[in-house]
Design a protein around this nucleic acid. Structure first.
Lengths: 142, 142
DNA sequence: AACTTTCATTTGTATATACAATTAATAAAA
DNA sequence: TTTTATTAATTGTATATACAAATGAAAGTT
């Protein structure tokens, strides 16, 4: 059954969630080669891009609750991909050398993901959708 | 921080998930009056609309995995809002009288949700977005 | 300086969702 | 008709995400 055949096809709750779940499945496939879930992969990518960030900043960047960031970091730490350094009430999150060495494969997964959805949806059309979704998300509270 | 300020603002994974989470929060608020989470509320609405449906059909309609539907039905059953009737390998899900009596409040919550997001996003613009998201979801596998 | 408030992060707990495996029933094939 | 395959639904288990409470540190106030 197509998403458009649902009785809720005009509902923002239904459509945004249905789309997100489908995109997530595609992302999961793309990130399998390095054994990370999409959210872990995106967090690690952020940490690699800007080493030493605070969990709070990562929470802003990824639009995830602070507690979620803590949980994600714990997993990455257990995999020896990041380390936390605490000073006072602040925590600094750094990538390990292992993570740095993984960079090419990470880039590759991200690229494959882009290619995967662009080839299905069309590059222009998916870009347009992303822009619209971000614009709408900006308008919504929190 | 706005969604558009994230380094991932061009990414379909990030934007679709960020949007869905924000919409979910709005929906949670809207459904609080009847004490149901959005997914439970949508499932119940479906069951009220078409009593006697099979879990498989509900899974199609709501685009959720069969096991998820089972779990949601269990909750609704515990709240005495639906009953399952099994015949052979098929299961029929019916709303209880309690659920039927709740119909006006349910409609009200749905209406309030629509109003809430339409007033923030604009009726036309949110409709357009929904249509685009559904169209894209249709193209994605599974 | 002592007290209070604020803030960053983490923990305890709860919820949603799904995959894989299982069960039970029907349908198909031999 | 016995066996095999398919199908519907459920269960076991795992993951992601978040709220609320707790912790510990810094800043502000008196």
């Amino acid at each position: 059954m197509k998403t458009s055949d649902s009785i809720f096809h005009q509902c923002l709750y239904f459509s945004s969630n249905a789309l997100a779940r489908k995109v997530e499945k595609l992302a999961i496939e793309s990130w399998k080669p390095i054994g990370l879930s999409p959210s872990h992969a995106y967090l690690l990518t952020t940490i690699l891009k800007q080493p030493g960030q605070h969990p709070g900043a990562l929470s802003d960047e990824l639009q995830l609750a602070p507690s979620t960031i803590t949980r994600l970091i714990e997993k990455l730490e257990a995999k020896r991909l990041v380390v936390r350094m605490t000073s006072g009430k602040l925590t600094y999150v750094h990538p390990t050398q292992t993570a740095k060495n993984l960079q090419p494969q990470i880039d590759n997964c991200l690229n494959n993901f882009y290619k995967a959805y662009s080839s299905i949806l069309g590059e222009i059309e998916s870009q347009k959708l992303v822009q619209q979704m971000v614009a709408i998300a900006d308008k919504l509270p929190i």
